[in-house]
Design a binder for these strands. Structure first.
Length: 473
RNA sequence: GGUCCCAUCGUCUAGAGGCCCAGGACGGAGCCCUCUCAAGGCUUAAACACGGGUUCGAAUCCCGUUGGGACCGCCA
């Protein structure tokens, strides 16, 4: 039988970390089994669903590389189907009309809470006999409630094992609102059944919904799918991950300069493991993924480890690829790609990639290459741009000007010549030059910096530094 | 409050009764390398929540306690 999984977000916000991991696990499971992965937008709550959210979710999935084989399906376009199912349950006496208003229900819930009792629907509309009021063509507004019969319902969960629920604990749930729109539990069941979903993989915050849904499958005469309830992702304070724990939007990570694969790798390893392995390609992930190795306990989202992974993948990446990805981050800083043509971006990337954990950091680290007029950091200038350096800078400048092939080796030779003659340590020369060329005391290796700038720019910046020293004092 | 889930270093985890005075990774500390910052190398601190069983033997099985989480909507 073909494995079919689905990711079913509600479009009431962007794709967040938790949703992304649920999507990823669904995707991995489907890909591992050569099955199908389906995307379904659960927008039955017309009031809260937005098109922007749908688009944001689509963007997030695309960025992560979670491609789907079917969909996106929209529940809002399938209302007739849900209604048919609701009425079918009504006709077969597995559901009943409820004339209680939302206000009444709310009041009763409050009263129950006030008395310290568990809020629960009292079933009054069930007992008053459907027959009496079902007929009338001009019925008062009513919702349709599903009749939960006594007994126990067993959820056979791939991750959690067998979980038994006493049906007494389950309310007669509303499946069709008084305005005729269907509710979540009905829609999920109808969709998963009609879309032939074989494995329902979702967060374990849905575990409590599983028995209700199983009862619905049974009442509707549909086969019950397999369930796999994933443990939650928590914030650092071990509560449900939310905005106060930092960025939770997948696309925010794109903007912060993360590689999608770093996020995918991180998310996969949060809750799933394969021995001691930390680094996985997509191929390895799909090949090795299995629920056998998905843990039962919730996990804390650890931004530091994600950052480490991102750094890892940046270090491993090809400079050409990184250069392309870096461009937008340079543009944000005001360096239009067109204006930085004289320098080779891949060569620049090569010098900053191992010291950049994100593209934002990389853009910062590379910024000095593009600044027309560098401003020396005050402390750095004071310490390193001193009168005794004028002679050194002059020597470097003239010798550099005479170099025929402006290579790393040639530059190094120039420096070695000077420090040998003067009996200086390289550090004594390199730091002042670094300040002269980059404005600060932190940069890639000085020879690479000079090589990237090229003869002309290097000479120009040295001259500027000399002038600065002279003018200063 | 009720129902349900969960419990190994700060964090993610390995561990399917003896291989474990518990291994890896992130983060931390220290050292080495070094033109700065990184990167890299080496070293190091750090955990089986607690209490009872079962067993020759328990991180691993059972029960309880404690702690954490989720859900209890005409939201999804």
């Amino acid at each position: 039988m073909e494995i079919r999984t689905r990711f079913a977000p509600s479009p009431t916000g962007y794709l967040h970390i938790g949703g992304a991991r649920t999507a990823l696990f669904n995707w991995l499971f489907a890909r591992h089994h050569n099955g199908k992965f389906i995307l379904r937008i659960e927008d039955t709550d017309v009031a809260r669903s937005t098109e922007e959210s749908t688009q944001a979710i689509l963007d997030g999935m695309q960025w992560l590389g979670l491609d789907y084989d079917e969909g996106p399906y929209f529940q809002s376009k399938r209302f007739d189907l849900y209604r048919e199912h609701a009425y079918k349950l009504l006709e077969t006496d597995k559901a009943y009309k409820c004339y209680c208003t939302a206000e009444e229900l709310e009041q009763r819930r409050k009263d129950a809470m006030a008395q310290g009792k568990t809020p629960k629907y009292d079933g009054r509309c069930k007992s008053q006999g459907a027959g009496a009021r079902v007929q009338g063509a001009n019925d008062k507004p009513f919702a349709i409630r599903f009749k939960v019969s006594p007994g126990t319902t067993l959820v056979k969960d791939i991750i959690k094992g067998n979980v038994a629920f006493d049906n007494n604990e389950i309310d007669d749930l509303i499946i069709l609102r008084s305005d005729g729109t269907p509710t979540y539990n009905l829609c999920v069941v109808v969709d998963d059944a009609t879309m032939n979903i074989t494995h329902v993989i979702r967060g374990d915050d849905h575990l409590n919904n599983a028995p209700k849904q199983i009862l619905l499958y049974e009442a509707l005469g549909y086969p019950v799918p397999e369930f796999a309830h994933l443990p939650m992702i928590l914030g650092s304070d071990k509560t449900r991950l939310s905005k106060r724990h930092g960025a939770t939007s997948v696309m925010a990570y794109k903007e912060m300069g993360y590689l999608p694969h770093a996020l995918v790798n991180y998310l996969a390893r949060l809750g799933w493991s394969h021995g001691d392995q930390e680094i996985f390609t997509i191929e390895e992930l799909t090949e090795k993924f299995s629920f056998e190795n998905v843990g039962k306990s919730s996990g804390v989202f650890n931004p530091e480890k994600l950052l480490w992974l991102n750094h890892h993948y940046i270090k491993e990446a090809k400079t050409d690829d990184l250069a392309k990805l870096l461009e937008p981050f340079l543009e944000v800083k005001g360096y239009a790609v067109g204006t930085i043509h004289e320098l080779s971006l891949p060569n620049i990337v090569k010098t900053v990639q191992e010291r950049s954990k994100t593209f934002v950091e990389m853009a910062d680290a590379a910024e000095f290459y593009f600044k027309e007029n560098i401003v020396y950091e005050e402390k750095a200038a004071q310490k390193f741009l001193t009168p005794d350096m004028i002679e050194i800078f002059e020597a470097i400048r003239t010798r550099l000007e005479n170099v025929t092939t402006f290579s790393h080796e040639a530059i190094e030779t120039v420096f070695n010549g000077i420090i040998n003659e003067k009996g200086m340590k390289l550090g004594k020369v390199a730091q002042p030059v670094r300040v002269a060329l980059t404005g600060g005391t932190v940069s890639p290796g000085i020879f690479e910096v000079i090589e990237n700038f090229g003869k002309e720019k290097t000479v120009e910046k040295l001259k500027k530094a000399i002038a600065f020293i002279k003018q200063k004092g």
